[in-house]
Design a protein around this nucleic acid. Structure first.
Lengths: 246, 246
DNA sequence: ACATAATGTGTGTAATTTACACGATTATAG
DNA sequence: CTATAATCGTGTAAATTACACACATTATGT
């Protein structure tokens, strides 16, 4: 077979050299990374967007993205974009889907790999105002640049599924959080109401929340206890089998 | 902002024209699609591989893939590869992950979008022998070309998760199948043993299996009833909320 | 006819999920 | 300092679901 083999034929194999020139000359496209960055603030799930300043694009908002550099891994590219925009390292980041429709981008063939990131809004509030960045409530996101709405929709649906089976949601909260905050977060992401007592029971039963012995401050009501998420314990005990169910 | 905006600066926005030349000249890479095609035969989960005939690559096996054509959508490219190899249309196909490490391919920068497909081995048995194609038991897959083992591993792990929450597994079976066959399939994919009675109860409770009133033929024991999967009913009734649990 | 092998169904128990109510604590307004 | 409003923190009974397990049935092969 050949390296790219859908046309291969045992009697007429491609050579490595031939392939190299094919790779270098013919089927070349640009590749970009777009980041769907979620945040949680004022009990709302938000997404970080940037305003287009091109008249041609009517001041639409778009996701944060950039072309992948020639010597840059895809993940590295996503981290670079996040770093440039938020100043933060060590963000939660995961690849979600790749969008490569022929007509998706006006500048030619551009394939975009979508990444999701979850960040704690408190930690980078400073950087926002310098740019044309803006936190949008996810429910009010309508039209975005190019196919970015489609990308956003995919990532939001991904988040709603993912957050039920994986504790990535904690990345949206401060290190110390109350159970009420955690529940508000889940209610905002999933867009549902949950029973407070059962929510509490469920998370305590998981045994990944650590009571750090502090209380909420400056709340206009009885303060709740603060917890942190024990990620190591989670990693050790996480489920592998959740059962057939659809 | 600009179309690619990680370097954008309100005082110095990129122009659309500038971007177009950037897309056309600088950051260009080749893009390919690799398909991980699963089959189920003799109660084993198999994956369809093709043998490399390049000496340089020591007769390693590789996934089925090809470069994406300039005017071809990613999904279309994956369908084309499947069609060329199996002669089948309408296969189950889903994008899983994109692999873009800088050094992953010897011919230069090649980004590969991995797709998973599930096919019914009966339906295309004819085409296999013409090529260097081979069904490998998934448990015996060791070294593959380039990073294809990594791609395969990702797709297999994806399948194991996915099959628990989505009825894609039926694509591996004939239209009519017995419950025993279905259970064998799940046991092969998940590499576990399941209780026959509970398995049966679970699937009947879902109410997506239709008794077609026929029995197995040519089995050396009491024939089981044959069923088909009612995909429409599934689509109407599928769950949206499966609960927080990790 | 008998041994063998798989099918098809039922039942008790444990575990999990759900629904639901009340007293305690804190801040605020008067 | 008292009343009010809000949230915290907890327990229990009912319903549902998951699991372990046993036995009678139907076919095959000899």
């Amino acid at each position: 077979m050949s390296l790219f083999n859908a046309d291969s034929n045992p009697k007429n194999p491609k050579t490595l050299k031939g392939l190299q020139s094919e790779v270098k000359s013919i089927n070349r496209v640009a590749i970009s990374v777009d980041c769907v960055i979620f945040g949680f603030d004022e009990n709302k799930l938000k997404v970080l967007l940037i305003r287009s300043d091109l008249k041609k694009y009517q001041n639409k908002f778009s996701l944060l993205g950039d072309l992948v550099k020639p010597e840059e891994d895809l993940d590295a590219s996503a981290y670079r974009i996040l770093k440039q925009r938020t100043g933060l390292n060590d963000l939660y980041l995961e690849q979600v889907h790749t969008f490569g429709e022929v007509g998706r981008h006006p500048s030619g063939r551009v394939i975009s790999v979508a990444y999701c990131s979850l960040i704690n809004v408190q930690h980078h509030r400073l950087k926002i105002l310098e740019n044309e960045l803006h936190w949008h409530e996810v429910n009010t996101v309508t039209e975005l640049l190019f196919d970015h709405k489609k990308i956003f929709d995919k990532c939001y649906a991904w988040l709603q599924k993912r957050v039920q089976k994986h504790p990535l949601g904690f990345s949206l909260l401060p290190n110390k959080f109350s159970l009420r905050e955690l529940q508000n977060l889940y209610e905002a992401i999933l867009n549902i109401k949950l029973d407070r007592r059962n929510f509490r029971k469920k998370f305590f039963a998981m045994n990944f929340l650590v009571d750090i012995g502090e209380d909420e401050q400056n709340v206009p009501h009885r303060p709740g206890k603060l917890y942190k998420f024990d990620y190591e314990k989670y990693e050790k005990n996480k489920k592998t089998w959740s059962g057939i169910d659809f």
